Simulated scan of single mutants.
Amino acid sequence: MRCLGELEAAVMRVLWESSEPIKVREVLERLDTGRSLAYTTVLTVLDNLHRKGWVEREMDGRAYRYEARRTREEAAARTLHQVLAGSGSPDAVLAHFAASISDEQAEALQAALVERLRADQGL
């Protein structure tokens, strides 16, 4: 999965906030980008997101209903993986990141790492 452009990110926010798959018209009505967008623009963005693997779609009558393929959190984690992979020095990036986060974020990260170790060890 590649990183998202501004309009793609806005469309994904709409999908993440929806409790069910929605049609292009519904996405257009819920978008808050500060500018007027055409139906075809939103349709193109959703088609691109589908092609990139960010959304799933299912035919409903003559139109598709779209939903996010992954949660917002899963997508953010994938983006972090891409940043690390493209950094040239993932260990250094992680060290800088760890030094820059809040105490609460450090505790959450530590808890997640402990959980991972337990899962890896089958505990």
Rank of each mutant, 00 (worst) to 15 (best):
L28H: 01
H96Q: 15
D60C: 03
P90F: 08
Q105L: 11
T40S: 12
A98L: 15
T33Y: 07
A99R: 15
R51T: 10
V83F: 06
E58I: 10
Y66G: 02
V11D: 01
D60P: 00
S87K: 05
E26P: 01
S87A: 10
G86S: 11
G122L: 03
E74F: 03
M1P: 13
L4A: 07
A92T: 11
E67N: 01
E56F: 10
L4W: 08
V27L: 08
R116M: 10
A92F: 05
R25E: 08
D47K: 09
R69Q: 14
V45P: 00
A108Y: 01
V114Y: 05
D47P: 00
R69C: 08
E58Q: 14
E73Y: 05
W16H: 14
A76S: 02
A95I: 10
R13D: 12
K52V: 11
S89C: 12
Y66V: 03
A9I: 02
V45W: 00
S19C: 04
V42L: 01
L4S: 07
R62H: 09
T41H: 01
V114F: 05
A10M: 01
L84T: 01
M59K: 14
R62W: 10
E58L: 07
V27K: 06
L46Y: 04
G5N: 06
E104Y: 03
M12H: 06
E67D: 02
A68H: 05
V11P: 00
W54A: 15
W16Y: 11
S36M: 06
L94D: 10
V14Y: 01
L4E: 08
A10G: 01
L80D: 01
E73T: 09
L43W: 06
R2D: 04
A106C: 02
A77K: 12
G34R: 07
R30D: 00
V27W: 04
G53N: 15
Y66E: 01
A98Q: 09
E58A: 09
R35A: 14
L117M: 10
T71Y: 07
Y66L: 02
L123V: 10
E73F: 05
Q110T: 11
L31Q: 07
I22Y: 13
E8N: 04
E17G: 15
A75F: 13
K52Y: 15
E67T: 03
F97V: 14
A95H: 12
Y64H: 14
